[in-house]
Amino acid sequence: MSGREEVVRVRDLRTQIDGNVIHEQVDLTAYRGEVLAIIGTSGGGKTTLLREIIGLREPNGGTVEIFGQDVHRLEWREEHELRKRWGMMFQQGALFSALSVFDNVAFPLRELRKRGEHLPDDLVRQLVMFKLQLSGLSADDANKLPATLSGGMIKRVALARALAVEAELLFLDEPASGLDPETARDLDSVLKDLHEELNLSVVMVSHDLDSVAALADRIIILAEKRILFEGTFAELGRSEALEQDVVKRLFKGPRGAAARARMKG
């Protein structure tokens, strides 16, 4: 693995919220072109970790580097440039409620400019319409407002928006949560296609083991404030980490079936 380019590198991260320690000595690495899934129990600080990686929250200690640059120690101009290189899909969608579906997806495209040069309007329009259909929405949905959308549609719009600029790196926070199994599978296959097509690097946070098993190349288990395991499913199958109670519980039951199947190879 040492030869591969690192896109995300977290070292010795420490988080404390209201006196409670959430993470301690968290180290993780994501390589170019892989799908890395961070799994763990609910309330285990997965989303907080993701927010710290993309610089929305300052960690209490440690470093976060994306494309070799320390996210939390950049000049604002450099940070601005860096931020254009990744897309983020929030758990609740985080759509702009005052903008239509179309304008939500067009937003990051319109923000992309170099020395005042924008993308031509008609190119933006076609790209947005294409992204909407790529995410499984129909052309008629373009003029709707977020308040009129169902949960599944909000996720799809959020995905379309995260994909809009086709950044090299995509962060997904619980992409499958709140979706019915079929919609979740659709979304998984869209993500898988895109990942293969664009050689995207994906860092996802999820507790949905089905979608993790379908998408992830490597997994990270975050529990009890630390990283208990980092590696592929096959490696997990042979790992001692599997002996720990937290990890056992995570993969127990019918929901872990797909993941267990991958561990066996």
């Binding site: 329009r125 076609q126 947005v128 319409m129 294409f130 259909q133 373009a142 003029n143």
Partner: peptide, 20 residues
């Protein structure tokens, strides 16, 4: 090669925004 896939995708995509 594999990039053909994009081109195929466009041929049945609806790229015009419905009128407001």
């Amino acid at each position: 090669g594999e990039h053909e896939r994009w081109l195929e995708r466009f041929s049945d995509a609806h790229l015009e925004r419905p009128a407001l």
